[in-house]
Simulated scan of single mutants.
Amino acid sequence: MLYAAAEIIGEGGHMRGIRFDGQGTRQPFEVAELAEPVPGPGQLVVRTEAVGVGIGIVRMLAGGSMPSSGPGGEMVGHVAAVGPEVTGYEIGDRVGGVVFEGLYADAVLASPALISLVPRGIDAGDALSLVRGGLIALSVLRAARFERGESVLVTAAASGTGHLAVQLAKALGASRVVAAVGSADKADFARSCGADEVVTYSGESWGEPVDVVLDGVGGELVQRGVDALAPHGRLVAFSAGGGTVDAGSLLGELKSVIGFSIGLISRRQPELVDERRAELWALLAGGALRPAATTLPFDRLAEAVELIESRRNLGRVLLRH
C-alpha cells in the first residue's frame, strides 16, 4: 500500500493524503489520515494550496516505478516548517516548485534547491502553471536561440506547457506561431492562446517551414518537426517520449536538434531558474500570459488522471485544497 505523504521524520500532527493501491489508473484514490512530515536537514515542509496532475503520474500508474510515498510533481503553497541547515526561507513564505514524491497530501517535504518564492496575490492555479510548465516553455524558447520576428511551431500545443509556449512565442515577438495538436477539437483553444495557425499530427502538411520547433511529444514527431524546419532552423526536443532523427535531413539546410532538460538547469544554474521565474511573474502581471487550467478538488484525483490519460485536457490540470 502506498500513501501520498512524504517520508515521516520524527513526530508531527495529522493531515490528509491520497492512498495508492499499487498500479493502475482506475483505482479509487481514497483520502486517508496520515502523519504530517517533519523536515530533516536541508528540507522544508510546505503546506500545499494546489498540486499538479500530469503525464508523469499516468506513466507511473500504468507500470512505471512508483516512489514509496507516491508520485511527485508541481506544487504551490506556504512554508510550514524549516529543517536544520536551510537558509533563505522562513515559515509563512509562499513558494512553488517540484517535489519528487509524496505530492498528493496536505503537506509535502521539499528541497530548497527545487523551489522558489512565489509573489503573494497571484492565484495559486496561475502560479502552479508557471512554476514548471511556464519555466519549461520559456527555457526551451531560450534554448532554441529564438529571436524576435522568427516563426515558431509548438507540438502538444494544448498541454500545460505547450499552451504557455504558444503565448510566450507571441509575447516575445514571433512573426507566426503554429500550434500542432492531436485532434482538431483543440483548434479553438490553441487559437485562443494566440496561435496563428493550427495543424494536426495526422495532417499531410504542417504549412510553410518555420524557424523554430518546440517538441514536447517525441517519437515520430521529432523527425516530422525537423522536416517542418526552414534552412538554419532549430528544433528543441524536451519530451520524455524519445524519438530518432535522420542525420541526413539536417545536413543540406543546416538544421539542428537541441536536447533540453529543466532538471539539469535547475541543478546547475539555479540563479537562471530564479531569473526566468521572475520574468514569468512579470509577463503574467502584464497580461501577456493567461494560464489555462482545469481545477478540481483534492479528492477528485481519479477524474484528473482520466483527463490526462485520455488527452482531453486543455492547459494544466490541478487539484486545489
Rank of each mutant, 00 (worst) to 15 (best):
A158W: 00
G64A: 10
V199A: 11
G70K: 08
F100K: 11
S239P: 06
G225S: 13
R176V: 02
L221Q: 14
G160S: 15
T200Q: 10
V131W: 00
M15K: 13
R26Q: 04
G63N: 04
R300G: 00
P270K: 14
G52F: 03
V245S: 04
R142D: 14
D299P: 06
D246F: 01
L2G: 02
V210I: 08
S256K: 11
S159Y: 02
G194W: 06
V212A: 04
R16A: 10
A195L: 08
T161Q: 14
S202D: 12
E101N: 13
A110L: 13
E204S: 10
R311G: 06
G40F: 12
V58E: 11
V46G: 11
P67W: 04
L251V: 13
P291R: 02
S205F: 03
E85C: 14
S249Y: 00
D126A: 15
R268T: 15
E85Y: 09
V222N: 00
R224C: 07
G10L: 05
V177M: 06
G252E: 12
G216W: 13
S310L: 10
T295L: 11
R142Q: 11
R277C: 05
F298D: 00
L114S: 14
S151I: 06
E74I: 04
F100L: 14
E275L: 08
I265M: 15
M66Y: 05
L168R: 08
S111D: 15
Q223P: 01
L44S: 12
R316G: 03
V199K: 10
R312A: 11
L251I: 14
L128S: 02
P67Y: 04
V31G: 05
S202L: 07
A171P: 12
E275Q: 15
L61T: 01
Y201C: 13
